[in-house]
Simulated scan of single mutants.
Amino acid sequence: MKDIFDECQMGDLKLKSRIIRTGTWETETDEGGFLTPSIYDRYENMAKSGVGAIVSEIFALDHKDRFYPYSTNMNYKGFIKDYKMVTDIVHKYDVPILGQLAFFYYDDGENQKVEANDISQEGIRKLQAEVIMAAKKFSFAGFDGIQINMGNNFYLARFMNPYFNQRDDKYGGNTENRVRISSEIIKVIKSTMDMHVSCRINPWDVRKGGMASDESIAIACELEKAGADSIQLTARTISQIYDKGVKHPFLVYVDDLIDAVDIPVVLGGSLRDMATIKEVLNNSNVELVSMSKPFVAQADFLSDWKENGDGVAICQSCNNCYSKKTSTCFKY
């Protein structure tokens, strides 16, 4: 029987439990971008609660990005010092931490919102260099790895999606070509840094002519081939599959993905209570589960779960923290 608080591995990372905390927005910095004391407290409360690993709030590449006002700034002068303190706090509890990079737009120097079909190969090289530099900054700040968000509706998700990408060069067409922009980034990071690389992907797209589940699995295989250490599931939308009698919408897909790759797969998506998570762990091939909003409502809720052997997150799934792009809970 698998238990939530089993010691386990996520690739090269040793975990104290099967729960991966996933971050979203960061809104508690001061005007200069420096971290406030509440951020350090939040990370410490999560780290000491029994979480297996922590994925940070979103870091953005560019101050002109759509979500930059709600994201962590990695370009302010105190970034390395501030986040070295964060990672030191987390490591004090023997918990690994990944920096999450996600960007919606990309500015190639000619177009602030250049899309997959229009970006030149020189622009692609610029983008790749900026992502690799972000990974190096994470390394300097003490992060154990980088999670590149290639899911939801972020830039790299669109680039890999046949709905958006109709290029006729080596970065378009078949799956390998559409993933190439990301594969080349991963190869450089893995060959030059001691960093865990996690890729966040969608299992499907819910667009006509978009990405289906078999295409998503093919994308995951390409990312693994490039050197990715783990895959985490997310989605642009998951509501369309809830009416099919499945308790968790990704369970119709995740075992096929796990069978197709030899790297850890982290199941995400609206998990809120210990009983359901245990049921998923013991009735599927899932080994690792991610949670996001419950940590916004109560950063240390896993301490109660571990002590009581049962529990339900106080998060009410109101979605205000996400929709209003804040790192704080409106109810608690």
Rank of each mutant, 00 (worst) to 15 (best):
219 I>T: 03
211 M>Q: 11
220 A>K: 01
227 G>L: 12
228 A>P: 01
219 I>V: 13
225 K>P: 01
226 A>K: 02
217 I>K: 03
232 Q>D: 13
222 E>R: 07
205 D>L: 13
226 A>H: 03
224 E>M: 13
213 S>M: 13
224 E>K: 12
218 A>P: 04
231 I>H: 01
206 V>N: 12
205 D>N: 14
217 I>V: 14
212 A>V: 11
228 A>N: 03
219 I>G: 00
207 R>H: 03
226 A>M: 05
205 D>S: 15
231 I>P: 01
224 E>D: 13
223 L>R: 04
206 V>Q: 08
223 L>M: 15
207 R>K: 11
211 M>I: 09
214 D>A: 11
213 S>H: 14
226 A>Q: 03
221 C>H: 00
230 S>M: 07
211 M>D: 02
228 A>W: 02
224 E>G: 10
216 S>T: 07
230 S>C: 06
218 A>M: 13
223 L>V: 07
225 K>Q: 08
219 I>W: 06
212 A>P: 02
229 D>R: 10
223 L>I: 10
221 C>P: 00
230 S>Y: 05
227 G>T: 11
215 E>F: 12
204 W>E: 12
216 S>F: 04
208 K>F: 15
230 S>H: 06
209 G>A: 07
218 A>F: 04
213 S>R: 10
233 L>D: 01
212 A>D: 14
218 A>N: 14
218 A>E: 15
223 L>T: 06
210 G>S: 12
207 R>E: 08
210 G>R: 08
204 W>H: 07
226 A>G: 04
230 S>V: 05
230 S>G: 06
204 W>N: 07
231 I>E: 02
221 C>W: 00
223 L>D: 05
224 E>S: 11
222 E>N: 07
211 M>F: 02
214 D>E: 14
204 W>S: 09
214 D>C: 07
204 W>C: 07
206 V>H: 09
206 V>K: 08
209 G>C: 07
205 D>A: 14
220 A>Y: 00
233 L>E: 02
217 I>T: 05
219 I>S: 02
222 E>Y: 04
232 Q>M: 14
216 S>W: 04
206 V>I: 08
208 K>S: 15
217 I>A: 05
229 D>K: 11
229 D>W: 09
230 S>D: 06
208 K>M: 15
225 K>Y: 06
204 W>T: 06
226 A>Y: 02
232 Q>I: 14
233 L>M: 08
208 K>P: 12
230 S>A: 15
225 K>N: 10
210 G>W: 09
215 E>A: 08
224 E>F: 10
211 M>C: 09
204 W>Y: 13
217 I>Q: 02
227 G>F: 11
227 G>N: 11
206 V>P: 00
215 E>P: 00
230 S>E: 07
221 C>R: 03
215 E>D: 11
233 L>P: 01
232 Q>L: 10
229 D>Q: 11
232 Q>N: 10
213 S>D: 14
216 S>P: 04
210 G>D: 10
223 L>W: 06
204 W>A: 09
205 D>Y: 12
212 A>W: 07
205 D>M: 13
214 D>K: 13
230 S>I: 06
207 R>I: 05
228 A>C: 06
221 C>L: 00
215 E>K: 12
223 L>K: 04
227 G>R: 09
213 S>P: 10
